[in-house]
Design a protein around this nucleic acid. Sequence first.
DNA 1: TTATTTAGTTGTCAAAGTCAACTGTCGTGG
DNA 2: CCACGACAGTTGACTTTGACAACTAAATAA
Lengths: 307, 307
Amino acid sequence: MTMADDIAAMRAFNRFYTRIIGLLEEGMHSSPYALSEARVVHEIGKRSATTASELCEALAMDRGQMSRLVWRLSDLGLLASLPGADKRSNNLALTPQGDTVYRDLNAASDTDAENLLTPLDPLGRLDLVAAMRRIEAILAGPMQGGTLTLRPPRIGEIGQLIARQGLLYHLEQGWNREFELLITRIYAEFDAAPDPATKALWVADYAGELAGSIFVLPAPGEERTAQLRMLYVEPAFRGLGIGKTLVDEVVRFSRAAGYRRIILWTQDCLASARRIYQGAGFELVEEEKHHSFGADLNGQYWALDLQ
Amino acid sequence: MTMADDIAAMRAFNRFYTRIIGLLEEGMHSSPYALSEARVVHEIGKRSATTASELCEALAMDRGQMSRLVWRLSDLGLLASLPGADKRSNNLALTPQGDTVYRDLNAASDTDAENLLTPLDPLGRLDLVAAMRRIEAILAGPMQGGTLTLRPPRIGEIGQLIARQGLLYHLEQGWNREFELLITRIYAEFDAAPDPATKALWVADYAGELAGSIFVLPAPGEERTAQLRMLYVEPAFRGLGIGKTLVDEVVRFSRAAGYRRIILWTQDCLASARRIYQGAGFELVEEEKHHSFGADLNGQYWALDLQ
DNA sequence: TTATTTAGTTGTCAAAGTCAACTGTCGTGG
DNA sequence: CCACGACAGTTGACTTTGACAACTAAATAA
């Protein structure tokens, strides 16, 4: 996929979605309030109290226009402006009537959105929302206020983990489909491994997006030793401490499950992973050159003794 | 994920993307042409020749507005209107100067889009474009003019196939993660199977979207017998003959590879798949009740003799 | 033939958006 | 402390956009 193709696809989507947004705004037309009025009411309702200049900022509107809009909405009784500490600006808030208008507008927008969603089958809805979330996450950059939760994988996410890691290491490290095959086997083995009390897989869920994962299971042939595998963090969510959280969780779980030692295998080209292992107390046990996934690699065995 | 969550996510995306589109249109401001003029030039350039009413239709504009716009653009020398067979309407086309303006506007829009794409890492770009394609495919419904191609899977697509089928059959049939585990193993086995001349996996690519897949490999323990597995078509792309195309390709390949017989295993609850197998000449060999994937199922063995 | 639809033009308005000048108010550096 | 620049908001004058209706002329249907 070349840059020109990407640009063409993006422009096609922009044209397409401009129409969708146009359709949704058309719906607003039936309300007695103009679009800009509705946008202002919505914005104030969301923040519950602001100043005019903040509204200009948020809605990308002219100050003059905003001034007149505030007047009109105040005349209509939807808006109250009390002078604040700073006598240059007024604190704007919705009156009770304004609040009902806000709710009405919200309800109308909700049904508009619902009308787009209802004709879809459940899978389509799931996909649509996931794609929208993804676009936001990618274009807005690492979100500020997301919450991180570790949870077991949902159905379909094992496949996603395989797909993402196969693609990711192909792009970042140039590894070929041998690697995708390997991790497909690894995940199949994990699922097939017997005792659920000694193994666990966590998905890092950051603001609803799949941001990373890790799993741990008994190391083959070694007593009371756990094997940490498949640590991975989405590029878009790096630098948020997700990798550390995942490894810490594995260590916590392994202790609780009665393991005495955790081992792992990684490659020295994966620098940020190595830093996380070091930070968690792992120590390098052995190194070994090998040729895999179409690349010359330096495999590393790390271990952590749990007292 | 409830409907209310989906609606909230969709509205959040709409607000977000309204801003993005606003930013892109801002870029247009630097050009000497107004937004509506640019849009008309772009639309005519795309179709190379049209009438005013078609433009109104395509751009959702008022006829009066369009009439004046056409006049202005004609005055500026960008547009030529020759009377057509129907003397009520004029055929509109860009003059050479109009065409250069069209190209300039296009180039400007391209760089605007490029500016959004360049800060992204390759994976982010890939994801973004894929997500945009997906939204278009879902909201626009089955596209009319897409081309279907069968091709080998790209890196990362095996994982996608696992994810999609795991999720799909969970939603449609209520199957649990046992099924996802099974197909993870099946794909791992396929990849591990030895001779590449007797096995093949196809991905159905419809207009750039992953629309379905299938694979074939030697049946274990039976001489010169092929096993067809994992036929699947995305719900959004059903009714386009993709399933039939995939099965036909398997039959063609199996013949060419010297197989004498193709067998497959399916469940009777998968009605549309059964119809495709019947259409390709397969015959039901045996049925067997079993409990798998958290459901009571009726497994069916089908076979096709290749003369 | 007449009636109706379709394509396009023109006039009139209101709303939306732009620009610049203007009044107060705030905060800071000399 | 006070002069000055920055900031919040207002107002006037303007352009652009969009919406609606009345109109002409050609095409099409009854």
